[in-house]
Nucleic acid binder design. Sequence first.
DNA 1: CTCCAGGGATGAT
DNA 2: ATCATCCATGGA
Length: 298
Amino acid sequence: MRTKFLREIAAPDFDLARTLDSGQVFHWEKYRDGYAGAINSKGVYVEQRGHRLKVALASSRDNKEHGQDAQATIRHYFALDHPLAEICRSFPSDPAMRAARDFCAGLRIIRQPHWECLATFITSSMKQVAHIRQISRTLRQRFGKRLRILDCEMHSFPPARRVAELTEQDLRACALGYRAKNLLATARLVAAGEADLKQWNELSDEALRARLCELPGVGAKVANCVMLFAYERLRAFPIDVWIERVLKQKYFPGRRKVTPGQLRSFCETYFGRHGGYAQQYLFHYARRGGPASGGTAK
DNA sequence: CTCCAGGGATGAT
DNA sequence: ATCATCCATGGA
């Protein structure tokens, strides 16, 4: 095993810290002046220096990694090819959206591995970000492969076939609670090939959402997260309590009853073809930004 | 329609 | 140190 420092990678219009703190990915840890994490089975260290990323990448088995491939891996994972300026121009121009856009400069929606993203969001239901991070860490440490990047120990996310051979008790011991049964059942469907996550890439948004929602532990919210964060369906608009709060406050002020169906159809049309990005920016701004970001606002 | 499971970090006291 | 709060899916 060896660690390789790469040339720095150009990363204009990118904010690494903001991207990793925006509730879309849960395993990156602050380390030295950057972050340590894993992309598939590779340990990765990444540090932002202005408009460039300094990256170190280690691979546990296949050391034939070429610099170009590694750069491509990083560029692809962090979606450095997304045309952010154009995406932001496609947002509706209202006060809430403009404030969120200004606050979230450089925040990108990354491309996560399908299974890892699906599994993580199954464990996320009724959990807050800190808990989800905890669960992800435990699953990785117990069932993933050990990786080392610089002097930092990391673990890859266990593949579906690994999770499929565990018991519900094993998973409950990772603080999954009632989610253990769902994660196990879904892992077995994926491992058996009954749910072919890669093949689902070819499906339309509607068909993909329908397939995802058939999986145990996956409802509309989790399905939309997986579509957005793993399948690059940039129109998918997950509605959680934070977003619901924002939407009701900013777009339905004073309205007594707003049904989930009304919210959903509004989001599908109003925010346009990059609605998922709009959602992520509104979400991050509500959690981390502006006034009254405490979370208890009604 | 309502009610609830199950759990650890977080912030208030 | 104790306590209330946060939170999405699925089944009763």
